[in-house]
């Protein structure tokens, strides 16, 4: 792990907004922010462990549980008016997870989030960086099925 984190830190050299950049790359690399990685970052860039944790824990997109794909279902009030709760329920039932939980095999982590800015096609969700709109429960599950492969 140390080498991978050190490489990430090296790749952000020259950046001034360094902490956010490092955290994003660590999240991408490991699928979450491992505790050990935070210790290495603190050591390497010369700030305290608590400062790194303080920042990482503030932002909902940095997660502390490993998962291959993160499902973020929008429950902002425009999506909510158009049935986002049915989408959430369908995913919860299909995969046996609720908000903030990951499947046992670590394939999916479910997050119910506020507005993701796709209000022209509600209800909407993000799977990793990809966005999907005009969802129905069936359509949402069909999309997720593709990520299972």
């Amino acid at each position: 792990m140390r080498e991978r984190v050190q490489d990430i830190i090296k790749s952000t050299r020259g950046k001034e907004a360094r902490v956010m950049a490092i955290l994003h790359s660590v999240q991408d690399e490991f699928g979450y922010i491992p505790k050990e990685a935070m210790e290495i970052i603190a050591e390497e860039i010369g700030i305290s462990k608590s400062e790194i944790y303080d920042t990482a824990s503030f932002y909902s997109f940095f997660t502390f549980k490993p998962a291959k794909h993160v499902i973020r279902v929008c429950n902002g009030f425009v999506c909510n008016l158009k049935g986002s709760e049915d989408i959430i329920k369908a995913i919860e039932e299909k995969y046996g997870i609720s908000n903030g939980e990951a499947t046992k095999d670590g394939l999916f982590l479910l997050q119910v989030v506020e507005c993701i800015g796709r209000c022209e096609g509600p209800p909407a969700m993000l799977v990793d960086d990809e966005s999907y709109g005009n969802l129905t429960p069936e359509k949402a599950l069909e999309i997720l099925r593709r990520y299972e492969e």
């Binding site: 950046k15 907004a17 956010m20 994003h24 503030f58 932002y59 909902s60 997109f61 506020e114």
Partner: peptide, 10 residues
């Protein structure tokens, strides 16, 4: 210009 990506905080 340096691009900075947020962390999902309104």
């Amino acid at each position: 210009i340096e691009l900075v990506i947020g962390g999902g905080a309104y």
